[in-house]
Design a protein around this nucleic acid. Structure first.
Lengths: 253, 253
DNA sequence: CCATCTTTGTGCACGCGTTCACAAAGACAT
DNA sequence: ATGTCTTTGTGAACGCGTGCACAAAGATGG
């Protein structure tokens, strides 16, 4: 998952746990694939495998939505697709704007996954006057000056921020002031928003850093195991504070 | 955070909780900003605000790393930057390869956040022969045929998959076979990997769907509050199963 | 109609993560 | 040296999420 989440921990929406909501799109994708192969029904075991989760967890997740399965048979694929889509609010079309049409913004505009399910790129917005009018993914880029008007004319409530970090907070404030209440933030900044506005954060660099941590641990364990196997262990104590010189790749304990 | 996570839930690394690891990059970024402004020390309260978290949580997170603060004063910014960097394994350089140089792959290659802190784009790989040799972000794209050689020559252990969904699993298997043990997956697929390989998933479409859920709930609550205010409530019962026609935007209870 | 078999839905226990609240520790002034 | 004041570090309580294990429910066959 992209990682960072900025969420109201308080109100759970109609009793559906946040963790379950986060998995519904996963189930939906797996179900859609089954639907395209004209598979009529699926068991919790099969679907769980396809979605990469535990089958008990899947059943509990679905139990929050209602009793949509048939014991002894499984779940009706089409019906479940419909129910989850409805629950996620994907039966209606959500117009979204993307602000910041750099490399990432352009990639997002071209990303098929948006249009495919419930989302429509209503407008692309950039601060660079040279970009104005230039079509990206078939949509002409508009200038930031018109941001408020674009939001209101299109009834946009979801905004995607793909600007540099420095511009993100200001863009965010203008989006919110214009009526946007959900923001997907790709800029490496902590956005502060008023209550009632949801922010989700996708941070590429953070994901890599988390991987690096595990990678380092794996390397450390490997080397440690190796050292133990050789049974030649010399421990050089190092104490005190302050950025002292290099630290050995394999640290004791 | 992008959402999806595929992780060994079992082994906690040297006692540092996964949730804490996921926040360390956040702290590091805030600390780096302070460092650039030559701020010498910072309190848990201030740093927590900058990172967008609770101060108690931050202190507990740091307590897993050791006692790096000074009571009555706060934390030494430079020292903490060093300690967190070391903990995350960012004092060494991690060569990464990006596979799939479409819009997204190109955006990732150009993304400054990688190079800035511990990561180096060692190679760009694409299956399209027409791309071969073409420079993206100053790095010539190489063909998939040479994937194994590239991984081994550069000692790459972290791979980024930005291919279409259909190619992802196959690319993943080749990466793993060649020695990659950490994967950042942007393709909308569930990757299956052997034990010992970490996968983190960033799924743009899922993030939007989660936002849509909350957005729908907000709209529903608003409309419900409105209806209640008018005190004109007619409940039309609707039961039974099956994809019955349209569902009213505001559903009773 | 009854028995058997499959699969759902869920009660329960456990563990992780979060938050509160406070004692311990150190800086600083007198 | 002593007292005060600030801020850390952490024990303890709580709540959420996960997974086990099983009873309930329905399909299916005789």
């Amino acid at each position: 998952m992209a990682t960072g989440r900025t969420h109201r921990p308080a109100t759970r929406s109609r009793g559906i746990p946040e963790a379950t909501v986060a998995r519904l799109p996963l189930y939906l994708r797996a179900l859609t694939a089954l639907s395209e192969r004209s598979v009529p029904t699926v068991s919790s075991e099969e679907l769980a495998a396809a979605a990469g989760v535990n089958s008990a967890k899947l059943r509990k997740d679905f139990s929050y939505l209602g009793s949509y399965g048939t014991r002894g048979v499984g779940y009706d694929v089409e019906y479940l697709v419909y129910q989850i889509s409805r629950e996620l609010g994907l039966t209606q079309d959500w117009p979204v704007v993307i602000v910041g049409i750099g490399n990432l913004g352009a990639a997002l505009a071209n990303y098929g996954g948006f249009a495919s399910r419930g989302f429509r790129v209503a407008a692309l917005i950039d601060a660079d006057p040279a970009m104005a009018g230039k079509p990206v993914a078939g949509i002409p880029v508009q200038h930031t000056d018109d941001l408020e008007k674009i939001i209101k004319d299109n009834g946009v409530s979801i905004g995607v921020i793909a600007t540099p970090a420095g511009a993100a907070q200001q863009v965010c404030e203008r989006l919110v002031a214009a009526g946007v209440t959900s923001i997907l933030n790709f800029a490496p900044t902590v956005l502060s928003v008023p209550d009632g506005v949801d922010v989700r954060k996708v941070d590429l660099s953070i994901e890599l850093q988390i991987l690096a941590f595990h990678e380092q641990r794996k390397a450390g364990e490997e080397a440690l195991a190796l050292a133990e196997a050789e049974a030649v262990v010399e421990v050089s104590e190092e104490s005190g504070k302050g950025p002292d010189g290099d630290v050995p790749a394999v640290m004791p304990a």
